[in-house]
């Protein structure tokens, strides 16, 4: 059992890589879709609404399988330059995870943008700030502060979500755990070690978010 600990630790690196890529892309996607959602353009609004509805209403496993197994079926896609990315399970997983977390992030940011009190924006307008300036210097910082607790939960959910990568042949922490379990038949021991690593990561994320909440509180 002890000999498999280094393997698990190495697999943790892959889990962290998957997590950080998806969180960064997801935040970007979420920001764009949340802006579309609060915009007055009905078309943009509808697109964003259905995007978030579909991705939040279906299991992430289905989304991953559509991207990894399904897209490979399209001949025009296989011939295009996108195939370089889409043939790699790693990037397929990241695309699926980013789109999924992007949908949840867009909802978190939308509710944050919508609950900003109008007084802040009016104050900015009366100071003669441009719309863009109001958005960057007032709306975004306030929205970040408001959405931090919910966003922290989303990162933790995403950490657990990366385990799905093991279903498309990626050897992340869960994938390696499953491999060790099926070769040694020691499910409990492996569960304790892998579970502790996940719990430790959850604890780190939780503390990091708490620290940032305090920092924003102080301002």
């Amino acid at each position: 059992m002890i000999t498999s600990v280094p393997k698990l630790l190495y697999a943790t690196l892959i889990t962290l890589k998957l997590l950080s890529f998806s969180i960064i892309f997801g935040l970007f996607i979420g920001l764009i879709f949340s802006l579309m959602r609060i915009s007055k353009n009905t078309l943009l609004n509808k697109i964003s609404y259905y995007y978030s509805y579909i991705f939040r209403g279906t299991p992430m496993l289905v989304q991953l399988f559509i991207i990894y197994f399904g897209l490979a079926q399209l001949d025009w896609l296989r011939e295009s330059f996108l195939w370089v990315i889409l043939k790699e399970p790693f990037w397929c997983a990241i695309i699926a995870f980013s789109l999924n977390t992007g949908a949840y992030t867009s909802e978190i940011l939308r509710s944050a943008f919508q609950t900003i009190s109008k007084g802040y924006i009016e104050a900015g307008e009366s100071l003669g700030l441009s719309k863009f300036k109001i958005f960057v210097t007032i709306q975004i910082p306030v929205a970040i502060k408001q959405s931090l607790p919910a966003y922290g939960n989303e990162i933790i959910l995403m950490l657990k979500g990366t385990s799905l990568a093991s279903t498309v042949t990626l050897m992340d922490l869960t994938g390696v755990s499953k491999f060790i379990i099926s070769t040694t038949y020691k499910p409990v021991e492996v569960f304790i070690v892998a579970g502790s690593i996940y719990l430790f990561l959850t604890f780190l994320i939780h503390s990091f978010i708490k620290y940032n909440e305090k920092k924003y509180e102080a301002k």
């Binding site: 950490l159 657990k160 990366t162 499953k178 379990i181 569960f191």
Partner: peptide, 11 residues
């Protein structure tokens, strides 16, 4: 709540 669902299922 801190461990992936898949890991619990494998257990």
């Amino acid at each position: 709540r801190g461990v992936p669902e898949l890991l619990v299922i494998y257990l």
